[in-house]
Lab assay of single mutants.
Amino acid sequence: MQRVNMIMAESPGLITICLLGYLLSAECTVFLDHENANKILNRPKRYNSGKLEEFVQGNLERECMEEKCSFEEAREVFENTERTTEFWKQYVDGDQCESNPCLNGGSCKDDINSYECWCPFGFEGKNCELDVTCNIKNGRCEQFCKNSADNKVVCSCTEGYRLAENQKSCEPAVPFPCGRVSVSQTSKLTRAETVFPDVDYVNSTEAETILDNITQSTQSFNDFTRVVGGEDAKPGQFPWQVVLNGKVDAFCGGSIVNEKWIVTAAHCVETGVKITVVAGEHNIEETEHTEQKRNVIRIIPHHNYNAAINKYNHDIALLELDEPLVLNSYVTPICIADKEYTNIFLKFGSGYVSGWGRVFHKGRSALVLQYLRVPLVDRATCLRSTKFTIYNNMFCAGFHEGGRDSCQGDSGGPHVTEVEGTSFLTGIISWGEECAMKGKYGIYTKVSRYVNWIKEKTKLT
């Protein structure tokens, strides 16, 4: 034993070699072989497995989906700052455009905790909710729209109204504003409101030439003092309507412009014939205590009207009353817009006519005020429907199939267009061939041609 100890002390290297040989010859039971080890760690190889990531292109799944990435790591994937920024906006807080917040056709661009709407022409605001041009839906104005110097929408209202708090709607500024039905039992019968379409306001006024200088022999019209197929109006439903009495009662109609003036057809009036105007009328054979009678003290036909040349060209006249009318729910003026808007309103496509005229061709006159909704007829169809001249200051309205029309005794009465609950004068009943005849239409004086003249002559002093 002493000898062994001496050998170990003198030859430590020998001992180490012996131990190493023993270990190498022993069977290893701690580690699995290569094949079995792979069965336990069965993990798919990654895209760049075996390579240094710093030297390969980034992978979106590896960089940002398996674990949260930084902007720089995302930049490695896209290799483009702009594309990385677009991805980053949604990656950080989701897609803010998912709810489609942009209105009126706006395009949404996502941002971090926010979004941006790219608005089409005519709109602005956070969600493109603000109209900035009158060309689109009248700028959301209830009545009139004008573009300011910086191309912003400025709404306005006709006389007797003021802008509401929203700067879009119009509200009454006087007790009985024009064009409004205020009798409670008839307010439910107000005709369907007309909503502004998209309009090209630059070209809204037709490029028409008034044929002022045409000389033409007097034409022989049949029954051209021209509501057939209409309905009984309720008291106060058309408070701007008046009836004219002269040699015979209810020979023509008219509309209240203001307390002192009536507008009617020029062919209705004769110099030297006494005319009485009755406002607030409903049943011409009954006294309903809503009527107001006034005498006409002055007749002003349009300066281009000449019955000797043509009885229905420039067929418009103004009547001055001896005493002002007292405005109330049964006696209310009709609204008159400017030339541009009167023309736009007419193009809405349908209007209402009213009167006490004959209820059928050569038949009896109506006792109760009649009204009828009539569609506008395109000019080409209008011209083809008659052998008589249709001037540019006239328009056609009615039904091709016949059966409904204005008729004798309705002449001078109103053709009105309702705009968001307020009625505007767009025409004056003038003439036609018979009444409600198939293929024939009622012919009306186009008020847009005469609004400046009306307003100039009827100013209240």
Rank of each mutant, 00 (worst) to 15 (best):
85 T>E: 10
279 A>Y: 01
182 S>L: 05
119 C>W: 00
422 T>R: 03
395 F>K: 01
70 S>T: 10
148 S>G: 07
159 E>S: 09
166 N>M: 02
56 V>H: 11
16 T>I: 07
21 G>E: 04
447 V>L: 10
134 C>F: 03
280 G>L: 02
355 G>I: 04
250 A>M: 07
426 T>D: 00
262 I>E: 01
173 A>Y: 11
99 S>Q: 15
156 S>L: 09
51 K>F: 05
324 P>I: 03
327 L>D: 01
128 C>H: 02
221 F>C: 07
129 E>Q: 10
256 I>T: 02
188 K>T: 06
232 D>G: 06
313 N>K: 11
299 I>G: 04
365 S>Y: 13
426 T>S: 03
311 K>A: 09
145 C>R: 01
31 F>Y: 15
320 E>N: 02
23 L>A: 04
138 N>E: 07
424 F>Y: 12
217 S>H: 07
215 T>F: 07
210 I>Y: 05
119 C>A: 02
55 F>Y: 10
356 W>S: 03
434 E>N: 09
112 I>E: 15
76 E>C: 04
434 E>D: 14
375 P>Y: 13
189 L>S: 14
84 T>D: 05
91 Y>S: 12
398 G>H: 03
311 K>Y: 05
455 K>M: 06
94 G>P: 07
330 Y>Q: 06
251 F>Y: 11
434 E>C: 14
456 E>G: 06
333 P>L: 00
284 I>A: 06
231 E>I: 10
162 R>K: 08
362 K>E: 10
203 N>L: 08
185 Q>V: 12
407 C>L: 07
246 G>P: 02
403 G>C: 08
453 W>G: 01
188 K>I: 12
72 E>W: 05
426 T>P: 01
391 Y>S: 12
2 Q>S: 09
330 Y>A: 07
76 E>Q: 10
190 T>Q: 13
364 R>F: 07
151 N>P: 06
313 N>V: 09
210 I>L: 13
239 P>L: 01
2 Q>K: 09
26 A>E: 00
198 D>Y: 09
12 P>E: 06
119 C>F: 01
19 L>D: 02
360 F>T: 15
317 A>F: 00
322 D>N: 03
361 H>R: 15
262 I>D: 00
43 R>T: 14
374 V>D: 00
191 R>H: 11
90 Q>Y: 08
405 D>T: 14
335 C>M: 00
461 T>A: 12
295 N>A: 06
2 Q>M: 12
250 A>G: 14
262 I>N: 00
377 V>M: 07
183 V>A: 13
456 E>V: 07
198 D>M: 12
154 V>K: 12
38 N>T: 15
131 D>Y: 11
321 L>N: 00
322 D>R: 00
305 Y>K: 02
380 A>Q: 13
366 A>G: 12
54 E>F: 06
340 E>T: 13
359 V>Y: 08
250 A>K: 08
365 S>P: 07
454 I>F: 00
227 V>T: 08
389 T>N: 13
174 V>F: 05
384 R>G: 14
198 D>P: 11
161 Y>G: 00
329 S>V: 06
327 L>G: 02
116 E>Q: 11
443 I>L: 13
313 N>L: 10
402 G>M: 09
144 F>N: 00
326 V>Q: 14
241 Q>P: 00
95 D>H: 14
200 D>F: 10
116 E>H: 11
356 W>Y: 14
34 H>A: 12
130 L>C: 07
409 G>P: 12
80 N>L: 04
437 M>A: 09
187 S>M: 12
259 E>P: 08
367 L>Y: 11
20 L>W: 07
78 F>R: 15
317 A>Y: 01
301 P>R: 08
36 N>H: 13
348 F>Y: 12
345 F>H: 02
256 I>K: 00
34 H>G: 08
194 T>Y: 12
298 R>H: 06
186 T>K: 08
181 V>P: 11
79 E>K: 15
427 G>Q: 00
234 K>N: 09
311 K>H: 05
147 N>T: 14
314 H>F: 07
56 V>I: 08
165 E>T: 10
123 F>I: 07
383 L>H: 14
356 W>N: 03
178 C>N: 00
379 R>P: 13
60 L>N: 14
56 V>E: 15
173 A>Q: 14
195 V>G: 12
213 N>C: 03
281 E>Y: 08
140 R>N: 13
248 V>Q: 08
243 V>H: 05
43 R>P: 13
273 V>A: 03
394 M>V: 11
370 Q>V: 03
14 L>I: 12
275 I>A: 03
405 D>N: 15
31 F>D: 07
87 F>Q: 14
273 V>E: 02
394 M>R: 03
273 V>S: 03
8 M>D: 07
424 F>S: 01
251 F>W: 07
323 E>S: 09
51 K>W: 04
448 S>P: 02
261 W>Q: 00
372 L>M: 11
453 W>E: 01
166 N>Y: 02
29 T>R: 05
409 G>H: 14
346 L>D: 02
113 N>K: 12
221 F>W: 08
429 I>R: 14
36 N>K: 13
161 Y>R: 04
265 A>N: 03
325 L>A: 01
37 A>M: 04
281 E>R: 10
51 K>H: 11
48 N>F: 05
267 H>Q: 04
346 L>T: 07
125 G>F: 01
118 W>A: 12
321 L>M: 08
339 K>M: 14
332 T>P: 01
389 T>A: 11
11 S>K: 15
189 L>M: 08
193 E>V: 14
27 E>M: 04
343 N>A: 08
176 F>N: 08
226 R>S: 07
454 I>N: 01
29 T>D: 10
207 A>S: 11
413 G>M: 14
327 L>R: 05
351 G>L: 01
203 N>A: 11
213 N>P: 11
29 T>H: 10
297 I>P: 02
33 D>P: 04
52 L>Y: 15
455 K>I: 07
10 E>T: 12
135 N>C: 04
420 E>K: 12
426 T>V: 00
353 V>C: 03
134 C>S: 03
159 E>H: 06
117 C>L: 01
202 V>P: 11
358 R>D: 13
338 D>F: 03
70 S>P: 05
280 G>P: 02
301 P>Q: 12
47 Y>C: 04
360 F>M: 13
56 V>P: 15
289 H>I: 09
9 A>D: 04
163 L>S: 03
178 C>P: 01
10 E>N: 15
123 F>P: 03
149 A>V: 11
344 I>T: 12
221 F>H: 11
115 Y>G: 03
375 P>T: 10
151 N>T: 10
212 D>T: 09
402 G>D: 09
97 C>W: 01
334 I>M: 01
290 T>Y: 09
400 H>Y: 14
326 V>E: 13
128 C>G: 02
279 A>I: 01
437 M>H: 12
360 F>W: 12
403 G>H: 14
17 I>Q: 01
13 G>H: 07
259 E>V: 05
285 E>Y: 06
305 Y>I: 02
374 V>K: 03
87 F>D: 15
9 A>I: 07
231 E>N: 12
